[in-house]
Design a protein around this nucleic acid. Structure first.
Length: 185
DNA sequence: GCCTCGATTGACT
DNA sequence: GTCAATCGAGGCA
């Protein structure tokens, strides 16, 4: 299977977030299918770390695409993102859940299970050992608002594979509410 | 330097 | 449903 190239990531963040679903994340001897993502822009997105310009933490989002943006939060959790857009333009896709043999149905759970830490921040995801493999999967995509953000945009920027049981616990909770709302309408 | 809060999770009532 | 854990980044003085 071929690796996703840099050009795959050098596009609109929302587009990349959608197309990452069904792809295979590889780290060392671990691998898992991406089943849930969220898009984070820069300017104009108050939920993004890049909103107020580049900082020590968020500068990776402003760099070249196809790199990992790994950051630490809540004093105990690592989050894995993939940098998108062209060099100099901020954007990233949060990997929220993987389908694997491990317990990876959550953004902090998958980094723990795969041994992903801040050491990988800024590393290119287009090399063997830490990369994303292409897939011919054409999953049915569903969307909702993002999870756990206090200042979200009025848009659905979370994407997940419809019906997949490996989506995050928080995401499932949200998905139920999302579908309930939809059914009501 | 000091203070607040977070792109979460799991344990507990 | 509610809440503590736990620490670095970012905001402010």
């Amino acid at each position: 299977m071929k690796l996703l190239s840099k050009s795959f990531f050098a596009r609109n963040t929302e587009q990349v977030a959608r197309e990452l679903l069904g792809k295979i994340l590889v780290h060392k001897n671990f691998r898992g299918k991406i089943v849930e993502t969220e898009a984070y822009f820069g300017t104009g997105d108050p939920a993004s770390h890049a909103f107020k310009g580049p900082t020590h933490r968020s500068k990776v989002m402003f760099g070249p695409p196809g790199r990992a943006y790994v950051y630490f939060t809540y004093g105990m959790h690592w989050m894995l993102n993939v940098v998108t857009e062209t060099d100099g333009k901020p954007g990233a896709v949060l990997i929220r859940a993987l389908e694997s043999g491990l317990n990876t149905n959550g953004p902090a759970k998958l980094t723990k299970a795969f041994g992903i830490t801040g050491k990988l921040n800024g590393i290119e995801l287009t090399k063997r050992g830490f990369c994303i493999l292409d897939s011919k999967d054409k999953p049915e995509i569903a969307s909702s608002k993002r999870i756990g953000v206090s200042k979200d945009l009025n848009r659905n920027l979370r994407f997940y594979i419809k019906g997949n049981s490996f989506v995050s616990k928080n995401g499932s909770r949200f998905k139920v509410a999302d579908e309930a709302t939809r059914n009501k309408v």
